[in-house]
Simulated assay, not measured.
Amino acid sequence: MAKQGKRLKAINAGLDAEKAYSLDEAIRLIKANARAKFDETIEIAMNLGIDPRHADQMVRGVVGLPNGTGKTVRVGVFARGAKAEEAKAAGADVVGADDLAALVQEGKIEFERCIATPDMMALVGRLGKVLGPRGLMPNPKLGTVTMDVKGAVTAAKAGQVEFRAEKAGIIHAGIGKASFAEDALMGNARAFIDAIQKAKPTGAKGTYVKKVSISSSMGPGLKVDLQTLAAQA
């Protein structure tokens, strides 16, 4: 077993990895123990009783975190004419059509969120092998294929988070920074959990939410008591 550093030993000494904490207590303890030399991201992970290999059990969507993520998101938009100008005015970092497609094909992807107007999808569709594996392919269900370019860019910049279940049925996301107030982190966590609850697929059987944990970039994770979580909903 790898030796723990002094910092991690000190953190673990005050936390019980086997105990299930209330959501607010878990956030308070994780925030208090995020002592790295940078502003750590506070993360949430949810283990769901689903098998994402089946289409009727996939959980995917977007949620706007009320207090933002604390992260600057670079947004790329595929649009032409007036919609391209609308995207630039809304704060998009990269805007283009064929020229942007050529850059993406070369591997020059300078954005973390990709938005496209519907008329651009024939062009964007040819980039699926590049954008798809990176989770950047625009999707109408996620609001990233839309004529409301301004709204989509504004939402992405304001703290909208995409979520998608991984093979083991786990969903995770950053819900803020250690520098955030506890109330802000709590509000973001609650919004994320509620979004996952509402996204329960028709094919999910039995217990839907099996485990929830809170952690920081460099710290251990703490389990959240599901009973107290249900009581707070």
Rank of each mutant, 00 (worst) to 15 (best):
A92K: 05
A20Y: 09
L229K: 09
A34Q: 04
A79I: 01
A82Y: 02
A195M: 07
G174A: 14
A79P: 02
G68T: 06
R190K: 13
A184M: 13
I50V: 15
G187M: 06
D56M: 12
A102M: 07
L65P: 05
T154Y: 05
E43D: 15
M58T: 13
N67L: 10
L185H: 10
T146A: 06
A84Q: 04
Q57C: 12
Q105A: 09
S179I: 04
S22Q: 11
D148I: 10
R190T: 14
K71P: 00
R35H: 13
I42C: 06
G125C: 08
A165C: 07
F111E: 14
G219D: 09
V130S: 01
L29C: 06
D24K: 15
D225H: 10
A90V: 02
K211E: 14
A168Y: 12
D148M: 07
A55W: 04
P133K: 10
L123P: 01
I44P: 00
A152N: 02
V73P: 04
L226T: 08
Q227G: 12
K150F: 05
V130R: 02
L123C: 04
D16R: 06
M120A: 09
M1V: 07
R74V: 05
T146P: 04
G187A: 11
V62R: 13
L29K: 15
G132L: 08
V209E: 00
S22P: 10
F180D: 00
H172G: 15
G70A: 03
K37C: 02
G49K: 06
K210C: 08
V130E: 10
A173S: 14
D148S: 11
I50C: 02
E112K: 14
T202E: 14
Q227M: 10
G176M: 06
H172M: 12
L103K: 15
H172N: 15
S22C: 01
V94D: 01
V212G: 07
P220F: 11
K150V: 14
G68Q: 10
E40F: 08
D225P: 12
D183E: 15
T72K: 15
K223R: 09
K19L: 12
A84M: 07
T72I: 14
I11M: 11
F111V: 11
N67F: 15
A199P: 02
G96T: 04
L222Q: 08
A82N: 06
A158N: 13
P118T: 03
E85G: 12
E110K: 13
V63K: 11
A184Q: 14
E86Y: 02
A152V: 03
A168I: 01
D98P: 03
V124T: 00
A34C: 14
R126H: 07
T69F: 09
A34S: 15
K167D: 12
M186R: 13
A116M: 08
V153C: 02
S179A: 07
V94T: 05
G151W: 06
G68S: 13
V75Y: 00
T154P: 00
A173W: 03
C114P: 02
T72P: 03
A97E: 08
L131P: 05
G187L: 11
P140A: 05
V62I: 07
T207P: 02
A10K: 13
A82L: 11
K223N: 15
G206T: 09
G49S: 11
M121C: 04
